[in-house]
Design a protein around this nucleic acid. Sequence first.
DNA 1: GACTACAATGGGAACGGTTCCATTGAGTAG
DNA 2: CTACTCAATGGAACCGTTCCCATTGTAGTC
Lengths: 349, 349
Amino acid sequence: MSSARAASRRATILEVAHQAGVSKTSVSRYFSGERDRLSETMQTRIASAAKRLNYRPNQMARGLKGGHSRLIGMLIADILNPFSVAVMHGVEQACRAKGFSLVVCNTDNDPAQERDHLALLAAYRIEGLVINAAGQPSRELKQLAEQGTPLVLLDRSLGELEADEVGLDNARTIDMALDHLSSKGYGDLLYLSEPTSQASSRQIRLERFEQQRELRGLTGRALSLSLDKEASSLEQAISDFLASPSQRPKALLCGNGNVTLAVTRALQAKGVVLGAIGLMGIDELDWCQLVTPGITTLAQPTKDIGRAATEALLQRLEPNGKAAPPRRIHYQPKLLARGSTQDPPTSTA
Amino acid sequence: MSSARAASRRATILEVAHQAGVSKTSVSRYFSGERDRLSETMQTRIASAAKRLNYRPNQMARGLKGGHSRLIGMLIADILNPFSVAVMHGVEQACRAKGFSLVVCNTDNDPAQERDHLALLAAYRIEGLVINAAGQPSRELKQLAEQGTPLVLLDRSLGELEADEVGLDNARTIDMALDHLSSKGYGDLLYLSEPTSQASSRQIRLERFEQQRELRGLTGRALSLSLDKEASSLEQAISDFLASPSQRPKALLCGNGNVTLAVTRALQAKGVVLGAIGLMGIDELDWCQLVTPGITTLAQPTKDIGRAATEALLQRLEPNGKAAPPRRIHYQPKLLARGSTQDPPTSTA
DNA sequence: GACTACAATGGGAACGGTTCCATTGAGTAG
DNA sequence: CTACTCAATGGAACCGTTCCCATTGTAGTC
């Protein structure tokens, strides 16, 4: 009977200590990386008792006493976005390598969910937070920051809040896109973005596009719209663009992967052939090479970004880490030129 | 000075109690859903003190005493697989709706990582586990099960272990695929799967395919191979299939989304036009409608699966839940017929 | 041989909650 | 008026750790 009960519940440190005939302090030492302070005998006795009882230290109790939960939180605006998942993958691997666990929270771009999740993460006393959401910093987020929880922002900046930032070099990315499109002969451009209010990087890209487009003497415009609600307005925008008079080849530039998907769908629905119009996207996706004649993209180094974010975070957790000034890490995208920007209709002259 | 310190650390229940001039028992009651046992006065006093101190109960401490962490674990074999993410999304939403949080662990199909993650989840005393990995149940998993942690398996079964199962009706899925392909006139089929050793559902699909193919008098074969390491062997298999003599139209059937992606790439690399050969996949992906002429798929109801898994799990957590016999919930896929199975070359006779 | 230094170990007080049980006081039935 | 019930509240033990502070024993120093 007692063995049946024992099997149904995790053993405690006290039970192990008892089994091994030592004090719980010693068992605690054994499991907290202080094994070298214990004699050989003691180590083997504890090891065998622990194995026999199938003991694992209770992380809750540990966190309670020591004040560190070994938990990192991550806030993701849209988990269905492959880019976010790829970055998350990187973050998770890096965390695990350092002995931390990652709690992922998806907000579906909903501020209410974001607040809920933040409250939750706070309740678990996470030691750091990677953020890929948050248009406006919520009260919860500010509190978390005030309490000294290190923050890393992915591809956004949150003015007032002190936090490290990791992401793409957005200005350079737009420049690269324009360089590429110009060099291929496209001179009339439409930039399409998801709502800029939700992410500062979108804002930067859009502004940079407008500024550079003008500077380079290219025609066209930039547009920000919500994909969910305005599928028809996207089609309308594309139609207008295609119909607008211009003697230079037209191309569409998509601000992120979601836009690329929506635009590709819209073009297909319209029966527009890729190549008849140029198409280029920021964010590489599985299928960009598969849609004939291949969609040109600027790929983000997702794994690097994830790793860098985690490293920045964990450095803050080290003894003198908090003091350092905020880091800004910006990566260059990689151009993957494909057929969709290859042959502007009128450029063969 | 003291206020500065106060801001940098979370308030405790004792501080709130002190501020409000009540006992910590009352504060505890207030935050544990026993507000109706407190007088109006008390409630407002606690509320204001808590707000002033910005108090949130420490979930670690809660879990320690009460024994429930309010944490659900999820083991995912491959987080980069959109299907897994979609299901995870469903699981997470359902958890949150019931007041649980989800800790997601990605194993990258690596048994070692799986064991690590399981140890970790055990350390946090998760109350339930959703599993989308595990070819063979590891020792850690068995222990978790023995200790009474409810398990839900997604699309796999783990013989010896008692657990609920949620997933696709695999046999029916294969039948639907064969029905569709036959009805379109395809009579020579190649079924491609990822290694069946890693998931029982793959095993079932593959066996069912072979059995039904023969039963229906169709020619062809089924093949199981690893996508990572054997990209070339995939191409070889396809080449062989295409080269094999047959007077009936040929079609490829892909066992899951990863295979569909790899196969589509391989076909493109070979310069094979979709339509010259039939193509059909299990799992719907963003881009299946975009690759001309559109790839026919059998879509899984990912959201339903996620929700069902969570519900099964949480029911086990209820007072009498553990006793119920294991559930088996199987969903029907949805056929999305597209151009890739539309016009077998020789069927126009 | 007495004293110090140090390595090896154990005892017990936190950590921040929950929960059982006691206490108080007001209302109510006899 | 007394006894009893019940609602409202508080005291204190406990959950499973960590960690500070003894305590012991042994070796090294003069």
